[in-house]
Design a protein around this nucleic acid. Sequence first.
DNA 1: TCCCCAACATGCGAATCCTCCTTATCGAAG
DNA 2: CTTCGATAAGGAGGATTCGCATGTTGGGGA
Lengths: 226, 226
Amino acid sequence: MRILLIEDEVKTIRSLRQGLEEHQWSVDMAYDGDTGRRLALQNDYDVIVSDIIVPGVNGLELCRQLRRQGLKTPILLLSALGETDDKVSGLEAGADDYLTKPFEFREFMARVKALARRPAAVFQAEQVLRMADLELDQHTRLVRRAGKTINLTPREFALLEFLMRHPGKVLSKVEISEKVWDVDFDTGTNVVEVYVNYLRNKVDKGFDKRLIHTLFGQGYILKEEA
Amino acid sequence: MRILLIEDEVKTIRSLRQGLEEHQWSVDMAYDGDTGRRLALQNDYDVIVSDIIVPGVNGLELCRQLRRQGLKTPILLLSALGETDDKVSGLEAGADDYLTKPFEFREFMARVKALARRPAAVFQAEQVLRMADLELDQHTRLVRRAGKTINLTPREFALLEFLMRHPGKVLSKVEISEKVWDVDFDTGTNVVEVYVNYLRNKVDKGFDKRLIHTLFGQGYILKEEA
DNA sequence: TCCCCAACATGCGAATCCTCCTTATCGAAG
DNA sequence: CTTCGATAAGGAGGATTCGCATGTTGGGGA
């Protein structure tokens, strides 16, 4: 089971992390909201746990953003704020559970397990890569952007899959040739450029934000902002 | 939205019922565990709320029984017992959330809503046809026999899908032409035979038991025994 | 600042592969 | 022996992949 823990309070981190790992959970950490969001979209967790008060994007806003982007992963919010108003606004932001500090680890663990056994998580366990409103299911080989299904050829799919496995990373044409075409020499052609062009026509054209960007002389990169 | 409320304490019933109905929820009531279980299995609720201490089967046991019978509906347990042990055992019995009395109605409502927005029922609709060790997923369009993935062309898939939708039934070539090729006249060719042959090569050849059988002069049939 | 060249984008089309279906031939059932 | 079914072979048409030629753009040097 994979869990993402977004928290900046050292004491809480230590106890939760240790406890989770003793229960055989694989824990990814984020110490601020922005890192948390990136990880949440990039990887496929069974549960996400976030403190409300963290540096950067706070827990409530994080929930809203993730839900707006279609992420279905169960979210458990932690907070020192125990007022009904706080709980209500957390749950209305899209969280699935809300736990007030201080709490016993056993209750935390029981709630995390309850979230993980949801059928949503089972379905999520299929390999879905996300980047903004673009999603690629490695299992069903379905690609969608803003809800609209996109039809890719096998080679186009392989290229997009490679890009989405390394979001925000500059990928040189040599790297792409190696991983997508499986050739480690220069073919002397511009296949990569041709296929990047194909992908842009299908994935970027007609949508508001471009996701595939060129870094002159360096390669290509998949990211959100222009 | 439909909710089942299992509770015997008059005061709680009154406030919850009234509040839920003001939020446009349709409320079914049970005053004891046995009635609750019967209703839960009989009808299709979005959320089930149960007090732990009710006459007859108690809330914990109710959870276990419902889960054992495969019911996926989210369950919220209510209780005056606020100890960690109580919460943990409730969640481990299969509940999805646990709320300690007394609570404010707004928090209760927020938690119920959080449970109701789960995609549970949506994804339950897994469209898989099975025949012996052969399975065909109408949604992902994946076909497997004895765990081995089989690659079919669209036409082959349509033919196998038609056969699997009518297991054990004799299907004449005319019927197959109509349903799979959408032609209601005799094309004068033997397309059906050719495609049955393709299917046999991929689906039957190399496996111990044949599934596609010929009924001379009548048509084809999908069944187990030779 | 301007110019040029390398880097990149893109239109076009050839080669290849996949899918579908037909035809022809052979075997089996009744 | 006649009819029905199995199977091999191959062509039409479309999708896919890739190369090439020609625009277009970025950025470093004069």
